[in-house]
Amino acid sequence: MKKKKNDKFAVACAFEILHKCISIDHIEDCNEICKSLESYDELSKECLKNNDLSDEFLKDVQRYIDNYILPILEEDYWDFIKKEEYGKVNDKGFFEINSEESAEKICLEFMGNSLNLAKELLNVFSKYLK
Rank of each mutant, 00 (worst) to 15 (best):
E56M: 02
E56C: 08
E56T: 11
F57D: 11
F57V: 01
L58I: 15
L58S: 15
L58E: 15
L58M: 15
L58K: 14
K59G: 07
K59D: 10
K59P: 00
K59A: 12
D60T: 03
D60C: 05
D60N: 13
D60S: 12
V61F: 06
V61A: 05
V61W: 02
V61Q: 03
Q62R: 15
Q62E: 14
Y64D: 04
Y64W: 03
I65P: 10
I65Y: 07
I65D: 07
I65L: 09
I65S: 09
I65V: 15
I65K: 11
N67A: 11
Y68W: 03
Y68I: 01
Y68P: 03
I69N: 08
I69W: 08
I69T: 04
I69F: 09
L70Q: 10
L70D: 11
L70I: 13
P71K: 04
P71M: 04
I72M: 10
I72Y: 03
I72W: 02
I72A: 00
L73F: 07
L73I: 09
E74F: 06
E74W: 05
E74Q: 11
E75T: 08
E75K: 14
E75P: 07
D76A: 04
D76W: 06
Y77S: 01
W78C: 00
W78D: 00
W78Q: 00
W78A: 01
W78T: 00
W78F: 03
D79P: 05
D79A: 06
D79Y: 09
D79I: 05
F80S: 02
F80Q: 01
F80G: 00
I81C: 01
I81Q: 14
I81F: 05
I81E: 13
K82V: 01
K83R: 12
K83P: 08
K83E: 14
E84V: 06
E84Q: 11
E84F: 06
E85A: 10
E85C: 11
E85P: 07
Y86H: 12
Y86N: 09
Y86W: 03
Y86F: 15
Y86R: 03
Y86K: 06
Y86I: 06
G87D: 09
G87I: 05
G87W: 05
G87T: 01
K88N: 08
K88M: 04
K88D: 03
K88Q: 02
K88A: 06
V89W: 03
V89G: 00
V89Y: 04
V89K: 12
N90R: 04
D91H: 05
D91N: 10
K92F: 13
K92I: 02
K92S: 12
G93M: 01
G93I: 06
G93W: 00
F94C: 07
F94S: 07
F95D: 02
F95W: 03
E96Q: 14
E96N: 10
E96G: 01
E96F: 01
E96L: 14
I97Y: 14
I97K: 07
I97M: 12
I97T: 15
I97E: 13
N98K: 12
S99N: 03
S99F: 04
E100P: 02
E100M: 12
E100Y: 15
E100R: 11
E100G: 09
E101W: 03
E101N: 10
S102N: 10
S102T: 02
S102P: 08
S102G: 11
S102F: 05
A103Q: 15
A103F: 14
A103Y: 15
A103L: 15
E104K: 14
K105H: 13
K105G: 07
K105I: 02
I106L: 00
C107R: 13
C107L: 09
C107K: 13
